[in-house]
Simulated assay, not measured.
Amino acid sequence: MNKILITGSTGFIGKTLVDYLKSNGFEILEFPREKGDITQKEIWKSIAKVNYVVHLAARNFVPDSWKESSDFLESNVIGTSRMLEYAKEHDSKVIFVSAYLYGKPEILPIKEAHPLLPNNPYALSKVLSEEVCRFHSQYFDQDITILRLFNVYGPGQRSSFLIPTIVNQCLKNDKIEVLDLEPKRDYVYIEDVLNAILLSIKNVNKFQLYNIGSGTSFSVSEIIDRIQKICNTKLPVISSQVVRKNEIMDVIADISLAKKELNWVPQFDLAKGLEKTIATLRKFD
């Protein structure tokens, strides 16, 4: 039996993961937000046994985390703990989808062993959730893989994120407006993330943690240039030159461990990923 529970199944990654894993022969059990609160034990008792759990459910909009930090901690940490208790009861392998937790990096590229320096309440909730995962693996002998995703992008991403914001302006406006042109990020395309999850399901290590990124970084200015090239536009770019508090100026993932142990290699460079993203947005425009 290859039955997988996907929490957060209606989110950006979750909804594409459902179709992706179905196409790879898995039977999917969904746990969308509408089903209820993942912190409630009674809800987990009603879920049928599965072989695998991919845990995506989390409150993740960073600006909200500053205003509702205790709610983020409760939902993300307690929700993860409830999921792990369910997985322990049913002997289900867990893929815990985490995030960038390194703060301002001391060295680039960033290895998994880099100190964790969460710089917002959302990141703090993910660090604590990872520790709960580590504890369960060590003391309850659970099979758990953690994937630290860098900047995921692709079709279906919420319009408030950088790449869809720029694409939408490029397709609909007479100019492109952003806060700051300088910060660089490691952007990883959604289909590469789905493949990393699939390979993690097949992996047999009891506990492992991997960076999932592209291994390269691009500034906001470079992203705009590449999007304009694909859209065949030359719109003026206006930066308000607002530097966010605690801004991180460059991020590059060291993905050598995932390459070595998961046999995972990104298949989409930025140009290819942006082309697919823009084509999808044009289709539904």
Rank of each mutant, 00 (worst) to 15 (best):
G103R: 11
D64L: 15
P32T: 10
S69F: 05
A48I: 10
V97T: 03
N76G: 04
T39A: 01
S70Y: 11
E34D: 10
F61C: 00
N60T: 14
E27M: 09
F72M: 13
P105G: 04
H114P: 03
E85V: 03
D37E: 10
K35M: 14
L29Y: 09
K49W: 00
E85N: 08
P115T: 08
E42K: 14
E106W: 05
L108R: 11
D64Y: 15
A48D: 14
I38C: 08
K93N: 08
I107Q: 13
V54D: 12
E85L: 07
R82F: 02
K88T: 00
L84N: 01
Y102L: 09
S81D: 10
L73M: 14
T80C: 07
I28V: 15
H114W: 06
A99V: 01
K49I: 03
P115S: 12
Q40D: 14
S46G: 07
S70M: 13
N76V: 05
N76Q: 11
P118K: 02
I43P: 12
F72R: 07
N60P: 02
D37T: 01
I110E: 00
A58E: 06
R59W: 14
K45H: 08
T80E: 06
M83A: 15
R33M: 10
V94Y: 03
E89G: 03
H55R: 08
K41S: 07
I110W: 01
I28Y: 06
I43K: 15
A87T: 04
H90G: 04
V62D: 09
I43W: 13
E89I: 11
